[in-house]
Protein backbone atom coordinates (compact mmCIF):
# COMPACT_ATOMS: atom_id res chain seq x y z
CA UNK A 1 0.00 0.00 0.00
CA UNK A 2 1.52 3.29 -1.10
CA UNK A 3 2.08 6.14 1.30
CA UNK A 4 1.08 9.35 -0.42
CA UNK A 5 1.62 12.91 0.73
CA UNK A 6 -1.54 14.87 0.06
CA UNK A 7 -0.36 18.47 -0.51
CA UNK A 8 -3.22 19.61 1.71
CA UNK A 9 -3.38 16.95 4.46
CA UNK A 10 0.05 15.30 4.64
CA UNK A 11 1.08 11.64 4.56
CA UNK A 12 -1.82 9.23 4.21
CA UNK A 13 -2.26 5.59 3.16
CA UNK A 14 -3.24 4.75 -0.39
CA UNK A 15 -6.69 3.51 0.62
CA UNK A 16 -7.75 7.13 1.23
CA UNK A 17 -7.08 8.03 -2.40
CA UNK A 18 -8.42 7.32 -5.86
CA UNK A 19 -6.21 7.24 -8.93
CA UNK A 20 -7.20 9.69 -11.66
CA UNK A 21 -5.01 9.07 -14.68
CA UNK A 22 -2.27 10.91 -16.57
CA UNK A 23 -1.91 14.49 -15.34
CA UNK A 24 -0.24 15.69 -18.52
CA UNK A 25 -3.40 15.23 -20.60
CA UNK A 26 -5.03 18.58 -21.36
CA UNK A 27 -8.69 18.74 -22.29
CA UNK A 28 -9.25 20.64 -25.55
CA UNK A 29 -10.89 24.00 -24.97
CA UNK A 30 -14.66 24.22 -25.24
CA UNK A 31 -16.14 25.34 -28.56
CA UNK A 32 -12.80 24.88 -30.31
CA UNK A 33 -12.73 23.21 -33.71
CA UNK A 34 -10.39 20.23 -33.54
CA UNK A 35 -9.71 17.24 -35.74
CA UNK A 36 -11.00 13.76 -35.07
CA UNK A 37 -7.44 12.65 -34.48
CA UNK A 38 -6.80 15.29 -31.81
CA UNK A 39 -10.03 14.44 -30.04
CA UNK A 40 -9.42 10.69 -30.19
CA UNK A 41 -5.94 11.21 -28.79
CA UNK A 42 -7.42 13.14 -25.89
CA UNK A 43 -10.18 10.63 -25.16
CA UNK A 44 -8.46 7.33 -25.75
CA UNK A 45 -4.69 7.47 -26.15
CA UNK A 46 -2.54 7.25 -23.06
CA UNK A 47 1.14 6.43 -22.76
CA UNK A 48 1.96 3.39 -20.68
CA UNK A 49 5.18 4.64 -19.23
CA UNK A 50 7.76 2.68 -17.33
CA UNK A 51 9.40 5.12 -15.00
CA UNK A 52 8.56 8.66 -13.93
CA UNK A 53 4.91 9.44 -14.48
CA UNK A 54 2.98 12.55 -13.54
CA UNK A 55 -0.51 11.52 -12.55
CA UNK A 56 -3.64 12.75 -10.88
CA UNK A 57 -5.01 11.42 -7.62
CA UNK A 58 -7.97 12.53 -5.55
CA UNK A 59 -7.97 12.49 -1.77
CA UNK A 60 -11.36 10.92 -1.87
CA UNK A 61 -11.68 9.94 1.81
CA UNK A 62 -10.07 13.16 2.96
CA UNK A 63 -10.09 16.73 1.66
CA UNK A 64 -11.50 15.62 -1.74
CA UNK A 65 -8.88 17.65 -3.57
CA UNK A 66 -7.44 16.47 -6.86
CA UNK A 67 -3.66 16.81 -6.98
CA UNK A 68 -0.61 15.65 -8.91
CA UNK A 69 1.77 12.85 -7.99
CA UNK A 70 5.07 12.18 -9.69
CA UNK A 71 5.57 8.45 -9.30
CA UNK A 72 7.81 5.77 -10.78
CA UNK A 73 5.42 3.25 -12.30
CA UNK A 74 7.93 0.42 -11.93
CA UNK A 75 9.22 0.99 -8.40
CA UNK A 76 6.31 3.00 -6.96
CA UNK A 77 8.79 5.55 -5.70
CA UNK A 78 7.00 8.89 -5.24
CA UNK A 79 9.26 11.82 -6.01
CA UNK A 80 6.91 14.70 -5.50
CA UNK A 81 3.29 15.65 -4.94
CA UNK A 82 1.85 18.97 -6.08
CA UNK A 83 -1.36 20.92 -5.75
CA UNK A 84 -3.55 20.95 -8.83
CA UNK A 85 -2.39 24.42 -9.84
CA UNK A 86 1.32 23.74 -9.39
CA UNK A 87 3.66 22.57 -12.10
CA UNK A 88 6.56 20.20 -11.74
Amino acid sequence: MLHIKCPHCGMRSQNEFAYGGDASVKRPELNKEISDLEWDNFVYLRKSLRGKHLELWQHISGCRQWFKVQRDTATHEIFKTLKANEDI
Binding site: G20, L56, Q58, I60, Q65, W66, A84, N85
Partner: peptide, 14 residues
Protein backbone atom coordinates in the same frame (compact mmCIF):
# COMPACT_ATOMS: atom_id res chain seq x y z
CA UNK B 1 -20.68 12.26 -10.16
CA UNK B 2 -19.34 14.25 -7.23
CA UNK B 3 -15.77 13.26 -8.15
CA UNK B 4 -16.55 14.03 -11.79
CA UNK B 5 -17.70 17.57 -10.94
CA UNK B 6 -14.75 18.10 -8.61
CA UNK B 7 -12.37 16.96 -11.35
CA UNK B 8 -13.66 19.50 -13.85
CA UNK B 9 -13.79 22.28 -11.26
CA UNK B 10 -10.34 21.66 -9.80
CA UNK B 11 -8.37 20.45 -12.81
CA UNK B 12 -10.00 21.43 -16.10
CA UNK B 13 -11.87 24.68 -15.38
CA UNK B 14 -10.40 26.04 -12.14
Amino acid sequence: ILSHLEYYLQIVWP
